[in-house]
């Protein structure tokens, strides 16, 4: 290698190594969310000190506020457990900085000018429901269709689409949906929450140094406890929940995850007296081979799923949103 190449390499390598050290904690969160590996399992804790110190120094007011709010609104395990018969307690979750950071950048859509303050959470009123849409990229696709459908009946309603891609219930450190939903319900007095997520979840869960391997029974119980955390809180606050189930998926792991997760969503929603909205009969059943298209009586075969075998085409989203809107309208009549 020439001298200039060697010098360039030294400069680039030093820069990458120092930057890695300065961001090691965030990098750990990123790798955990993306590849489901935990650097803390392999590296000494002292290596994380610079990044943690910097993170605390550069933490914004917004993030501090969010963390504080999350600490206040976290439903204690006993409370969550008491709301559901047969449920188990779990340790109190502490949201990580990344979750707070992700919150800062999420989308909020106020569909009406009605102020959030002063509104009371409680049973959905027919006049102007306040509805939170939570979930991953699937909800990012679905929410605009559902909101457009609902607005015809509820022109003065308040809808907030806070869906965020690549999120789920597995990696709380990256994005903590239970805490986020609690915060938003308390802050914006939502009367209903619609949840649609899951394809990012069929991976091992790391919590308090313990690894829950997907799809072991312990994993299912841990996952179930996170679903319960949301449902128990909403039950307590008299907030309605509609949990949208997953349809067929192409990839084996995601498909297996959808089967396991759907079972949890359905059982827990029914347990708490909420609606579970299945989508398998609309855009593909999980016990069938994956197909992008379905038979339409008028148009013949129509494509309802995207090339990735997870998301939907606009036609597919319309097929899901129409009955979902009808369900919501019927429930709140």
């Amino acid at each position: 290698m020439s001298t200039s190449a060697r010098q360039t390499f030294l400069i680039l390598a030093s820069s990458v190594c120092i930057s890695t050290l300065l961001w090691l904690d965030s990098l750990d969160g990123y790798l955990n969310a993306r590849y489901h590996v935990q650097l803390t399992d392999y590296l000494p804790d002292s290596l994380f000190t610079p990044s943690r110190t910097l993170a605390s120094v550069f933490r914004t007011d917004d993030e501090e506020e969010s963390t504080a709010a999350a600490e206040q609104t976290n439903t204690p395990p006993d409370t969550a457990a008491s709301a559901a018969p047969g449920s188990q307690s779990e340790p109190l979750e502490q949201p990580a900085l990344l979750a707070a950071q992700a919150r800062k950048h999420s989308l909020g859509v106020a569909q009406s000018a009605s102020p959030a303050s002063g509104a009371q959470s409680g049973p959905v009123s027919t006049g102007q429901p306040r509805i939170l849409f939570a979930g991953d990229s699937m909800m990012q696709g679905l929410a605009p269709f559902v909101i457009a459908g609902l607005r015809k009946t509820y022109p003065n309603a308040y809808f907030s689409d806070q869906s965020k891609q690549s999120t789920g219930l597995t990696v709380k450190r990256y994005f903590d949906w239970p805490t986020r939903i609690k915060e938003e319900v308390l802050k914006q007095k939502f009367q209903a929450v619609v949840i649609f997520l899951g394809p990012n979840d069929p991976w091992d869960i790391y919590e308090d140094g313990v690894r829950y391997t997907f799809p072991s029974e312990k994993w299912v119980e841990k996952y179930r406890s996170r679903v319960r955390e949301v449902l128990a809180f909403c039950k307590e606050r008299n907030v309605d929940v509609i949990w949208v189930g997953l349809p067929n998926m192409r990839d084996g792991r995601v498909k297996q995850g959808a089967i396991v997760e759907n079972k949890v969503f359905q059982e827990e929603a029914l347990q708490y007296g909420f609606d579970y909205f299945p989508t398998e009969h609309l855009v593909g059943s999980l016990d069938m081979p994956f197909q992008k298209q379905i038979d339409d009586p008028v148009k013949g075969k129509v494509v309802v799923r995207a090339d990735d075998g997870i998301h939907f085409t606009p036609t597919g989203l319309r097929l899901i949103s129409s009955p979902l809107v009808e369900l919501m309208k019927a429930r709140w009549q």
């Binding site: 400069i11 030093s14 820069s15 930057s19 965030s26 990123y30 550069f58 992700a102 990256y174």
Partner: peptide, 25 residues
């Protein structure tokens, strides 16, 4: 600034970029 000063500059600038960017890629 070729050398360690350049390394310092790259680290500071990339730290600023990552600090200001949203989570995820």
């Amino acid at each position: 600034a070729w050398g360690w000063r350049l390394v310092t500059m790259i680290c500071l600038l990339s730290f600023g970029v990552v600090q200001l960017c949203p989570s995820g890629i």
